[in-house]
Amino acid sequence: MPTYIEGIIILTCINSIAAMGVSLLTGFTGIFTLGNAAYMAIGAYTTAILTMKHNLHWLPSVILGGLLAMAIAYLIGIPTLKLMGDYFAIASIGLGETVRLIIENWEPVTRGARGFPGIDSFTTLPVALTFFIILTWITFNLIKSNYGRAFKACRDDYLAASLLGFNTAKYRILSLSISALYCGIAGGLFAGFMTFLQPTMFDLQKSTELTAVVVFGGLGSLSGTILGTTIITLIIELFRPISQYRMLIYGAALVLVMIFRPEGLMGEKEILSLIRGMGRRGEHGRPT
């Protein structure tokens, strides 16, 4: 069993993976979601069932959980991503609740509301860190490529994007699918960390938290997402002893950012480009 500090780092890694998925969808493609905890739930329960009932190794189980979440997102995305703006967010709440209720009532498979106990504890610190580093690297690569520019074009002006030859519907569905894959993998790792699953772990509050950390860190900034997740995870975990006040602190942190940094902690900038920008400013003595 991991120690307390290790546990917090593992949880930060898991939450960051899920939040990066939401960041790609909300921050870079401009699609607000309030249901991505559903994909975490799909990943978590798939992993739990495959490892416990079918004796599959945890690594393929986690990946299959992610892929199943991705496939479901793809199928759901085709009709729902025709909705723009807030309408999709509302549809995603419906999806999130539907998945939670299915898990709660499909007792022979998911063991229902009483929860799914006794999952192998496979998410050690090295496992969580490896997943986190690989997925972060891939996400940074992706946003610095033709796909990243296409996502941002769909976010900034979908009409202009389609008049530059982009099939905007395809990119929106792709973005949702990738975000579901990330959330699914995060869910699988979460199952291996908690060793016990319950449908209420993936309720609307979890979905809101995923979107909140992305807004908190700055829409359109991946390092902001990771920074935001780290801060929020630390607040929630470190203040667990004074649990009556912890949601108060969490709320206060969000409100403070809204007042002082309405564009989020990082705005739209990445940490690396900020550091480089400072260096450049120092060399030439002119603002960039």
């Binding site: 033709n146 796909y147 520019r149």
Partner: peptide, 13 residues
Amino acid sequence: QNHLRYSFLEACL
């Protein structure tokens, strides 16, 4: 990038 396309995998890696 419309006429200089590369695959999703190449973009990721």
